Simulated assay, not measured.
Amino acid sequence: MQYKWPTNLQIAQIRVARPTHQIKEITKFYCDGLGLKKIGSFTGHEGYDGVMIGLPNADYHLEFTQHEDGSPCPSPTKDNLLVFYMPNLEEIEVMQNRLVDMGYNIVSPENPYWEKSGITIEDPDGWRIVLMNTAGI
Results as ranks from 00 to 15, higher is better:
1 M>Y: 04
5 W>K: 14
8 N>T: 14
12 A>R: 13
13 Q>K: 15
15 R>L: 10
18 R>W: 02
20 T>W: 01
22 Q>T: 12
23 I>P: 05
25 E>M: 05
25 E>Y: 04
28 K>R: 09
30 Y>H: 08
32 D>Q: 14
34 L>D: 03
37 K>T: 14
38 K>T: 03
38 K>M: 14
41 S>Q: 14
42 F>M: 13
42 F>D: 06
44 G>S: 05
46 E>W: 13
48 Y>A: 01
48 Y>H: 08
50 G>A: 11
51 V>Q: 09
52 M>Q: 07
55 L>Q: 09
55 L>G: 00
56 P>D: 12
57 N>M: 13
58 A>G: 00
61 H>I: 04
61 H>E: 06
63 E>T: 03
64 F>W: 14
65 T>M: 13
67 H>E: 13
70 G>I: 09
71 S>M: 03
71 S>N: 03
74 P>C: 05
74 P>R: 10
75 S>M: 10
75 S>K: 09
77 T>F: 04
79 D>Q: 11
85 Y>K: 13
87 P>F: 08
89 L>Q: 10
91 E>M: 08
91 E>L: 14
99 L>S: 06
101 D>C: 07
110 E>T: 07
113 Y>K: 11
116 K>M: 13
119 I>H: 00
120 T>S: 05
120 T>R: 06
124 P>G: 04
127 W>P: 03
130 V>G: 02
133 N>E: 10
135 A>Q: 15
